Simulated scan of single mutants.
Amino acid sequence: MAQTKGEKKTRPERSGNPAKRAAAERARMEESRAAANRVSRVPRKVKEKGSPRWYAPVMVTLLVVGLLWVVVTYLFKGTYPLPYFVENHASDWLVNGNLYVGFAIMLVGFLGLLRWK
């Protein structure tokens, strides 16, 4: 858009007059403050970003159950909680199956706690 001879486009922020420049800066700051203060006062439900409430107790329970499984296995020399491993695998590596099961339960609980938020 071209200017005619009688029109003069004024831009106070580019003015050589320091008073006009300061007034333009104050007006711009007031406008940005007003925009920042326009906040919705309508309450909104905040979405939970963390884990569900039941998650941590379940993982701690898995850790405790796994520990109890290993303790019972040691106390009863591998025959309990599952006698299957001692009866059917007395000569191979599965004789310690109860220990593997107990440590697997604890591992699931530990890995679950790593993902807890």
Rank of each mutant, 00 (worst) to 15 (best):
W54E: 11
A24I: 00
V58D: 05
A27D: 02
Y84E: 11
L99M: 14
P18E: 12
L113W: 06
E13M: 11
S40M: 03
V58E: 07
R115Q: 10
S40C: 06
A24Y: 06
K8D: 08
R26T: 15
N88Y: 11
L75H: 13
L67I: 11
R28Q: 08
E87R: 07
R38F: 02
L111C: 09
G50R: 06
R44L: 02
L94S: 06
A36T: 04
L111Y: 10
F76R: 09
V72Q: 06
W93V: 04
R41L: 08
R14T: 15
R28P: 00
H89R: 05
E25D: 12
Y84P: 00
Q3M: 14
V65W: 01
A23D: 00
T4V: 00
P81G: 13
H89C: 02
K47Q: 13
L75S: 12
A24P: 03
F85S: 00
V42C: 04
N17G: 01
W69L: 08
L67E: 10
V86S: 06
E87C: 09
M106C: 09
A90Y: 09
V86E: 07
F103Q: 07
L114F: 14
G78P: 00
E13T: 07
R44K: 00
V70M: 08
P52C: 09
K20T: 08
P43Q: 00
L114C: 14
T10W: 09
L94E: 01
E7G: 13
Y80S: 14
K77Q: 10
R44W: 02
S91F: 11
V46H: 10
G112W: 03
Y84L: 11
N96S: 13
L68M: 12
I105F: 03
G6Y: 13
F76T: 15
N37Q: 15
F103S: 07
P18F: 14
P52M: 11
R11S: 05
M106F: 13
K8S: 03
W69E: 01
L68I: 12
L63Q: 04
M1D: 13
P83R: 08
A104S: 15
R53G: 05
G16P: 01
V71M: 11
Y80T: 12
R14P: 03
R33V: 05
L94V: 02
G50W: 09
A23S: 03
V95Y: 06
N37P: 00
G66N: 07
Y74H: 14
T4Q: 01
M29N: 14
T79R: 01
R26P: 04
V60W: 04
A34P: 03
W54N: 07
A56W: 05
